[in-house]
């Protein structure tokens, strides 16, 4: 062993790349992706008991590719809705709402979802970039704490 390095991720992504990471995170946490049109039609009438938590995803920047496209993804699980979007400053954000849920629970859900989204973004980026540099992924495992471990081999002359 020669060294161990620790990195804090920075997410600079186009919306499609971010959307793919959100979809992977949703699957890993048991959320379903909801069609935006269906959600708008079924908006809850009673908003008084619906808690709402807004979280910004630190170190993120969503690169605009095409103006005017709908850059939002709505997820649902057990009465909790999470809406990923690009905020006015270009950062990725998530808004979590749920009737009958406390603010603390919704914040936990939002933090878990956004963390997992960053994890899957990093995973997808590393796999693609390392492959393009001729490095071979020889093992991929998921630990009990949901961390993802990759073993990569690189042959050099």
């Amino acid at each position: 062993m020669s060294a161990v390095a620790v990195f804090a991720p920075i997410v600079i992504a186009s919306w499609p790349a971010l959307g793919a990471a959100v979809a992977s995170a949703a699957t890993s946490l048991g959320f379903s992706i909801v069609d935006q049109a269906v959600t708008n039609a079924n908006q809850s009438q009673n908003t008084d008991s619906v808690q709402r938590v807004d979280l910004e995803i630190p170190g993120s920047e969503v690169v605009l590719e095409t103006l005017g496209r709908d850059q939002r993804i709505r997820l649902v699980r057990d009465g909790v809705e999470a809406l990923f979007a690009r905020d006015a400053r270009g950062r990725a954000s998530v808004c979590v709402t749920g009737e009958g849920y406390s603010e603390e629970i919704l914040r936990q859900v939002g933090e878990e979802l956004s963390g997992r989204m960053v994890q899957h973004y990093v995973l997808q980026k590393l796999k693609s970039e390392l492959d393009s540099r001729g490095m071979n992924l020889v093992e991929e495992t998921v630990g009990e704490d949901q961390s993802i471990r990759l073993r990569v081999r690189h042959w050099q002359n």
């Binding site: 991720p9 963390g115 471990r149 073993r151 990569v152 081999r153």
Partner: peptide
């Protein structure tokens, strides 16, 4: 041959 082991934590730290 060089070998790297990469762990991506549940909040994205590597």
């Amino acid at each position: 041959v060089r070998e790297y082991e990469i762990t991506i934590g549940p909040t994205g730290e590597v």
